[in-house]
Amino acid sequence: MLKTWNEYQKEVPDDHFFYVRSCIRQTFFPGSETMLLRILREHLNKDVFEDPRHTTCTGIGYHSDIIPLETIMTVVGRQLALMTEAGYKNLLVSCVTSFGIYLEILDMWKHFPEKLENTKIALKKSTNREFEIPESVSHASDVIFHFKDKIREKSNLKLINLQTGQPLKVVDHIGCHYAKIFPHEGFGGAEFPSVLSGLIKTWGGEMIDYPERRHCCGFGFRHYLVQENRGYSISNAKLKFESMAQYKPDFIIANCPGCTMFLDKWQYALAEMTGKTYDTKNNGIPVLTYEELAGLMLGHNPWQMGMQMHQINVEPLLEKLGYNYCKKEKYYLAGKPTKSP
């Protein structure tokens, strides 16, 4: 029997995934989701199916009190119907908000079977579709965690600062809806999430457990959506930056679309508002998605992964890693200059 949550391991299927994307990730971290698919398909020879007809899970609207429960249940039912029609049973979710939504709705259906029946009827009436309950729900970071050793075997890179010879210091941030709603659905539960720290440790970096590690990034849906409330939102991010800055981290890794975006963009906003950056070189702390990091491990071109779209310049990190990349390509990927931000 496991004694503590920090040893807790979640079960992740080995193959045959039905992938559902995030609404916002492709704007802020444009290469990440493609990277995941390429890693699974090209590097690990896994079967991942994606249906272009799938839609938003409406989670942001749901958490902002715009979308009613019945609606989101029907939308979730439709996504599952697409999966059922394609013959898949393992749901693979890109977004932590969606991940939380799927788990929450499935749990609700378990406890209130009449709600499931109503959803089935509503979906049948509106789309003539039928769905089955998935056998497993995995977050994309779960899958990267599951294959972390395989990725290490295929990689020539180690998370070491070549300038000092020391392991890179990494801080993580786990989206609140990853395991704080259903601790059993995340590696390490709610208190000791290891889904990202496990990657860092396996790939040679040093993981830092900083005091505000479990603090929310400040996203909070209805808070940042209203401009007047954004001060509250950014203050939470500030608290996290101040807590992690004392460890001089080389980069932040996050597994939630909103958190990754905020941790990246808020550093710029805070620098403008307070004049403070949270590293020693006035650059800010680079923020990476787990797919981008896995992509670097497997030798992918950072600019093809869209890392030039980050608010915080990632080049100082690439220098530390001694990463082989072409500086010039940053804004000249397609052979002609892309617009500089």
Binding site: Q227, N229, R230, G231, S235, T274
Partner: peptide, 14 residues
């Protein structure tokens, strides 16, 4: 440098 006005401000820590 004049700080940018985003229409919101950082709250103080309690």
């Amino acid at each position: 440098m004049c700080p940018l006005n985003f229409g919101y401000s950082v709250s103080e820590v309690k």
